[in-house]
């Protein structure tokens, strides 16, 4: 077999890049880039407030967005791989590489959700090992995702996760002082709901194809509105 020349490699790479850019993935890349940028701006924009106060709520809030950025990085990575190789299912075609990437995506996603929830609940949840429990639960969710390769299992895991989050947010808000749900709780519930739709979009390809644009635009709106709130409050 003739060795590949520099020009041939360049041509191959050029074709690959062209394939990526022409396969309708541009929107996916822009979408991921905006969400990652928003999350990192929130993380770094609140650094000074945390350094001055060492406030636990601020710490968990920042970590949630760092995990969102990492999760979205792996999410976009999975999407690019699927687009590039024109496959619809990651684990079947790339068993080892796919398992690692999907594991990281699910772990960071779950951690982001748990940390954001904990940022508003840390005063009420006094148990010392809460963070350890989050890591263990996230590891369990990620492992289950890799082991049970069934769309039904994926849907059940995510529905259970969302039910837990919604119940926690509802119970925490069901206090005599707070009669009306604040904007923040509505934004967080929407963020959790659309985040889970984003996860389902990765795990069960084509399941939400019809609503993909709507999910992407709403998710962008939610992240941008949180970033706007952060910028407004931190000047």
């Amino acid at each position: 077999m003739a060795p590949m020349t520099g020009r041939a490699i360049e041509q191959g790479m050029g074709q690959g890049l062209g394939k990526i850019m022409n396969s309708g993935i541009q929107g996916e890349i822009i979408y991921s880039f905006i969400i990652i940028a928003c999350s990192l701006m929130i993380y770094f924009g609140t650094k000074e407030l945390y350094n001055l106060t060492s406030h636990k709520g601020i710490k968990y809030f920042r970590q949630a967005f760092l995990f969102f950025a990492l999760a979205y990085f792996f999410r976009s990575f999975i999407k690019i791989i699927l687009f590039y190789f024109e496959k619809s299912e990651l684990l079947t075609f790339f068993p080892i590489f796919g398992s690692i990437t999907l594991f990281m995506f699910m772990y960071f996603s779950s951690m982001a959700i748990f940390y954001l929830l904990y940022s508003v609940m840390w005063k009420k949840w006094k148990w010392k090992s809460t963070i350890l429990l989050f890591h263990l639960t996230s590891l369990a969710i990620a492992t289950t995702t890799i082991l049970f390769r069934s769309p039904t299992a994926y849907l059940i895991i995510n529905i259970l996760l969302f039910a837990f989050i919604s119940l926690t947010v509802y119970l925490s808000h069901k206090q005599p002082k707070k009669k009306k749900p604040t904007n923040l709780y509505i934004i967080y519930l929407m963020l959790f709901f659309f985040w889970i739709l984003n996860i389902i979009d990765i795990l069960v390809p084509n399941f939400l194809q019809t609503f993909q644009l709507f999910i992407y635009l709403t998710s962008l709106g939610i992240f941008l509105s949180i970033l706007y709130k952060v910028i407004k409050k931190t000047n």
Binding site: L52, K233, T234, N235
Partner: peptide
């Protein structure tokens, strides 16, 4: 000094996100 200058910002941020 910085803490005192930023105090209101810190409190507003914590209130806004109910942290």
């Amino acid at each position: 000094q910085k803490y005192l200058e930023k105090y209101l910002t810190i409190i507003n941020f914590i209130d806004e996100f109910e942290l």
